[in-house]
Measured scan of single mutants.
Amino acid sequence: TTIEWNGTKITVDNPQKAKELAKKIAKKLGLTVKVHGNTITIE
Rank of each mutant, 00 (worst) to 15 (best):
T1Y: 11
T1I: 15
T1W: 10
T1A: 09
T1N: 08
T1Q: 07
T2D: 12
T2M: 07
T2S: 06
T2H: 08
T2F: 05
T2K: 11
T2P: 04
T2R: 05
I3P: 13
I3G: 09
I3W: 01
I3M: 03
I3S: 05
I3Y: 01
E4H: 11
E4Q: 07
E4T: 03
E4P: 02
E4S: 06
E4W: 07
E4A: 03
W5V: 15
W5P: 07
W5T: 09
N6T: 08
N6P: 15
N6I: 07
N6L: 13
N6G: 15
N6H: 15
N6F: 15
G7P: 10
G7Q: 06
G7R: 02
G7S: 06
G7Y: 07
T8N: 14
T8F: 12
T8E: 09
T8P: 03
T8Y: 12
T8H: 15
T8Q: 13
T8V: 15
K9L: 13
K9S: 14
K9R: 10
K9Y: 12
K9I: 15
K9N: 08
K9G: 04
I10F: 04
I10A: 01
I10R: 01
I10C: 14
I10S: 00
I10N: 00
I10E: 01
I10W: 05
T11P: 03
T11I: 15
T11R: 10
T11W: 15
T11V: 15
T11M: 12
T11Q: 09
V12H: 02
V12K: 01
V12R: 01
V12C: 15
D13W: 12
D13K: 14
D13N: 13
D13F: 11
D13T: 12
D13P: 10
N14S: 13
N14A: 03
N14F: 04
N14H: 06
N14Y: 04
N14K: 03
P15R: 09
P15S: 05
P15I: 11
P15Y: 12
Q16L: 11
Q16M: 10
Q16W: 09
Q16A: 11
Q16K: 14
Q16P: 02
Q16N: 09
Q16R: 13
K17I: 13
K17F: 11
K17A: 11
K17W: 12
A18W: 04
A18V: 04
A18G: 03
K19G: 05
K19Q: 11
K19Y: 15
K19W: 13
K19A: 12
K19L: 15
E20K: 12
E20L: 12
E20C: 05
E20W: 10
E20G: 05
E20A: 14
E20Y: 08
E20I: 12
E20F: 06
L21G: 01
L21F: 07
L21N: 01
L21Y: 06
L21M: 08
L21T: 02
L21E: 02
L21D: 01
A22G: 03
A22P: 00
A22E: 01
A22F: 03
A22C: 02
A22T: 01
A22I: 06
K23A: 13
K23W: 07
K23S: 11
K23D: 14
K23C: 15
K24T: 08
K24I: 13
K24P: 00
K24Q: 10
K24L: 10
K24W: 13
K24R: 13
K24Y: 11
K24A: 12
K24M: 10
I25H: 00
I25N: 00
I25A: 02
I25S: 00
A26Q: 05
A26D: 02
A26T: 06
A26G: 07
A26M: 07
A26N: 05
A26S: 08
K27I: 10
K27Y: 03
K27D: 14
K27W: 02
K27N: 12
K27M: 09
K28E: 13
K28L: 14
K28W: 14
K28R: 13
K28P: 02
K28H: 15
L29R: 07
L29F: 11
L29M: 09
L29D: 04
L29H: 14
L29A: 08
L29V: 06
L29P: 07
L29W: 07
L29T: 14
G30E: 03
G30A: 03
G30T: 01
G30H: 07
G30P: 02
G30R: 02
G30S: 02
L31C: 11
L31Q: 05
L31M: 13
L31K: 05
L31E: 03
L31R: 06
T32D: 06
T32W: 02
T32C: 13
T32L: 09
T32Q: 11
V33D: 01
V33A: 05
V33I: 13
V33N: 00
V33E: 01
V33Y: 03
K34Q: 10
K34C: 13
K34N: 09
K34E: 08
K34H: 13
K34R: 12
K34W: 03
V35G: 02
V35N: 03
V35M: 10
V35I: 15
H36I: 12
H36S: 13
H36K: 11
H36D: 14
H36L: 10
H36T: 11
H36Q: 12
G37W: 03
G37C: 07
G37V: 03
G37S: 03
G37L: 05
N38D: 07
N38H: 07
N38W: 02
N38K: 08
T39C: 09
T39L: 09
T39H: 09
T39W: 06
T39M: 09
T39Q: 08
T39N: 07
T39F: 06
I40K: 00
I40H: 00
I40A: 01
I40Y: 01
I40E: 00
I40G: 00
I40N: 00
I40S: 00
I40P: 00
I40Q: 00
T41N: 04
T41W: 13
T41F: 14
T41I: 14
T41Y: 15
T41R: 10
T41E: 05
I42K: 00
I42S: 00
I42H: 00
I42L: 15
I42C: 04
I42E: 00
E43V: 14
E43G: 12
E43R: 08
E43S: 12
E43H: 10
